[in-house]
């Protein structure tokens, strides 16, 4: 149903738009760089642009006023920011910023809103991605309550690797700390546990995935079930 026909794009959603919907949004898509820490959405503020990522990682981050940032959503070339807009809200509840530099096609919200109003197929398609993101978030809530640090780390590394490829991740401990909801020094401890099991190698600022299957096994169902739901809702990645 959703075949990746628009092969000049890397974004899995744009690749799958119908010819009519692509014609509707394409004139307003502007290619842009996503430098590290670029703010894509501000908390409780109107959304200005929607980003369809081509590469890199955007992180949806929730914040307790007195507490630390915690990641509640991960977006790469399989997704988009601005899901609140697809649901008819005009503001973002959370912050979303770039955790791994990349590129995107961005679109001003007014243009997306008018495209959504003109097309009968665009919103239903993008809502499928909203569902996939909802499932991802539900699993994050689940693992945050139920899984050990090393299991959660295994899940995040796999999720990042899916969005980057090459079994080699250049991600900061600061980012991993936000993903795991722990203080930054604890990341070293968790990485060491995975290294001790022979699943990864952590080098200066770089993490090499040595045993993907071992990581999937360690993540114990928290990885791969949401990914399967993405494939069901949208399609095979890549």
């Amino acid at each position: 149903m959703y075949k990746p026909n628009n092969k000049k794009y890397k974004n899995e959603l744009i690749r799958r738009l119908s010819q009519e919907d692509l014609a509707l949004v394409e004139p307003d898509l502007v290619r842009c760089e996503l430098p590290l820490r670029m703010m894509l959405e501000k908390r409780n503020s109107p959304i200005e642009f929607v980003y369809f990522l081509e590469g890199g990682i955007g992180s949806i981050v929730a914040k307790m006023p007195m507490g630390r940032d915690t990641e509640v959503g991960l977006i790469g070339f399989e997704g988009m920011t601005g899901t609140a807009l697809v649901l008819g809200d005009d503001q973002s509840t959370h912050e979303c910023y770039v955790q791994l530099a990349g590129e995107a096609h961005r679109m001003p919200v007014d243009q997306l809103r008018s495209a959504l109003a003109q097309s009968t197929t665009l919103r239903p398609f993008l809502l499928r991605y909203v569902q996939a993101l909802f499932i991802q978030t539900s699993y994050t809530a689940l693992v945050n309550a139920r899984s050990k640090l090393e299991e959660r780390l295994a899940r995040w590394l796999l999720m990042c690797d899916d969005r980057v490829g090459g079994d080699r991740l250049t991600i900061t401990h600061e980012f991993l700390a936000i993903m795991l909801g722990v203080r930054r020094p604890g990341v070293t401890v968790a990485l060491q546990i995975l290294e001790g099991k022979g699943l990864i190698r952590a080098n200066r600022g770089e993490i090499i995935l040595r045993d993907r299957n071992g990581l999937i096994e360690l993540a114990d169902g928290a990885y791969s079930e949401p990914e399967g739901e993405y494939r069901r809702l949208i399609g095979e990645i890549g």
């Binding site: 509640v72 509840t93 809530a141």
Partner: peptide
């Protein structure tokens, strides 16, 4: 609701 639950479950 789901994102807030994810947040409080970790904090």
């Amino acid at each position: 609701q789901a994102t807030q639950t994810a947040l409080v479950n970790s904090h």
